[in-house]
Design a protein around this nucleic acid. Structure first.
Lengths: 124, 124
DNA sequence: ATCTTCACTTGCATTTTACAAGTATTTTTA
DNA sequence: TAAAAATACTTGTAAAATGCAAGTGAAGAT
């Protein structure tokens, strides 16, 4: 018998938030080993699936396509055509996605200062 | 038997880095759904194991103790005694850990602006 | 028309996470 | 001082996420 906390799944497939804390919600959406690396690539000007795959960390393609889908659903990323008239896709950050720049920049600054052996990529 | 210090696998069990990118290294260390919530709690002034457990997100205790161990090993957190003379433990951020504040603040700002239904906890 | 590239998807083994329960100290209470 | 409660975990196990290799169909190039 379920005691205090109701366990029922809401009808919509919205991933449940753990709390209303903005940090917790941020992590619910972007907090894993790969998602913010895709955002980093986008901030660095990369836009194609193959470019994300070619990044030195080597993201698996199934993970990448799932993350791109989630970021697109959440309005952080949008699809465009890779070149005028082409049916191949590319991705770019929405305004909401661009607004993640300060987060990535503060992470980069911390890493450069506090983790040995890191070195900055060109620029963000 | 490796006679001299092999370059491939250092004797300590340092988790392999995916690349020298400071963002990637940051995520190797802190990039999951729970670790930065512990840092958030520490920035909010919480210091005891039970306080972290009592946070609204409900971190499982095995995850919490593993994360505290890792953060302590990496010099982000240090142990202190919970009250003078007590043998119970508490935790606090080192200087390196305090330096994570801008990261948490930018995440918080993004969440408040771009994710509905989030509301700020007291202050950080 | 054929070949190659692109952007995925699928299947499966491995790893990590979540949840419940248990345990050894330490501290408080009677 | 003995019993009870709190503290800070550990252990076991089911569920979910991840990592890797291989496969697929549409698009573009030759």
């Amino acid at each position: 018998m379920p005691s205090s906390r109701a366990r029922s799944t809401p009808p919509s497939a919205a991933p449940a938030r753990r709390s209303p804390c903005p940090v917790a919600c941020f992590l619910d959406l972007l907090g894993d080993r790969w998602t913010l690396l895709v955002v980093r690539d986008l901030l660095l000007g990369r836009s194609r699936f193959k470019e994300f795959v070619a990044s030195p960390e080597g993201i698996p393609t199934n993970i990448l396509s799932e993350r791109l889908r989630r970021l697109t659903e959440q309005g952080v990323v949008e699809q465009i055509e890779s070149s005028p008239g082409s049916k191949h896709l590319a991705y770019r950050l929405t305004r909401r996605g661009q607004a993640l720049r300060p987060v990535l920049e503060s992470m980069r600054a911390w890493g450069l200062k506090h983790l040995r052996g890191t070195r900055a990529a060109l620029e963000e």
